[in-house]
């Protein structure tokens, strides 16, 4: 009886402790969102989305250049990273037995684990150095390289999740492997792959380190693809460590906008996938 009481007590205490841990960690998200909303909303107005920054010391101005810059860098990253990751994912899912695919899988894991700042060095050596100046394109290539491993993994995973009966059905009708893959398997896995793409974009959208010496930053518009450009995360960093009060307020506003964008894309994609397993850089 006494022992039983002790065991029950331990059970209750540990349930409470682990539960408290969980609520503590989950509440961090609320703190982050709340604190950014509190500080960011005050500086958020139409100018923020439509105007260029003003010189330090003056109030007003916005971050239209950084919002457009981020969008362009992400577009470039997507065009570079996703096709490679997608087709390589198809390869691993459909032709993926043997030594060579094993090597590809290992290399992809390796690439996935490379710290983002090292990817920045790589993109610098690859693009910025030959071109002699930072550019939207260089930033896009840095983020594009970062998108490849996740793009590959989500594609492979969702293709493998397609029921064998669908493939068998197509094959039984006489379709070859390629026809089966591109007309039956991929359409069946489409929504999962697209959700994976959204998560992937949301992840690199917040990356700052690889952009520091590739897209670099810019106080003005950056027409075309070959000039240095501001991006939201880079401006948040630069403004947060600046000594100007007004810039810091703008950093909060930009942080809030970035956070809301990233989290809502994440939430939508996770709902679309229909389960809450992680698809991070694990």
């Amino acid at each position: 009886m006494k022992l039983s009481f002790r065991r029950k007590a331990v059970n209750a205490v540990m349930l409470t402790l682990t539960g408290a841990c969980t609520f503590l960690v989950a509440s961090v998200l609320l703190v982050i969102l709340g604190y950014l909303a509190w500080n960011g909303l005050a500086s958020l107005n139409l100018d923020f989305f439509t105007k260029l920054p003003v010189p330090a010391g003056e109030t007003g101005g916005g971050m239209a250049h950084a919002i457009l810059g981020s969008a362009k860098v992400l577009l470039a990253a997507m065009l570079i990273g996703v096709p490679i990751g997608f087709f390589a994912g198809v390869y691993l899912a459909e032709f993926g037995d043997g030594v060579f695919p094993g090597i590809i899988r290992y290399t992809t894991d390796l690439l996935n684990g490379v710290p983002s700042i090292v990817i920045g060095i790589f993109a610098y050596a690859l693009i910025v150095l030959p071109m002699r100046h930072p550019s939207t394109l260089a930033g896009g290539i840095a983020l594009g390289v970062m998108m490849i491993p996740i793009s590959l993994r989500t594609t492979e995973e969702f293709l493998r999740a397609v029921p064998v009966s669908l493939r068998e059905g197509a094959m039984a009708l006489g379709a070859g492997k390629a026809r089966t893959i591109f007309t039956v398997v991929i359409p069946a896995a489409k929504s999962g792959i697209l959700s994976g793409l959204m998560l992937n974009l949301a992840r690199v959208a917040g990356e700052t380190a690889p952009l520091l010496f590739t897209a670099f930053g810019n106080q003005f518009w950056s027409p075309g693809w070959m000039l240095a450009t501001a991006t939201l995360p880079q401006v948040i960093y630069a403004y947060a460590i600046s000594p100007y009060e007004d810039w810091r307020r703008q950093a909060w506003a930009a942080g809030f906008v970035l956070l809301v964008l990233v989290l809502s894309v994440n939430a939508v994609a996770r709902f679309a996938i229909g389960r809450t397993t992680s698809r991070g850089r694990s």
Partner: peptide, 12 residues
């Protein structure tokens, strides 16, 4: 909720 937390950018 906790997995959304993993998505918060490091600059934030």
């Amino acid at each position: 909720t906790i997995e959304l937390l993993a998505a918060v950018p490091s600059v934030i």
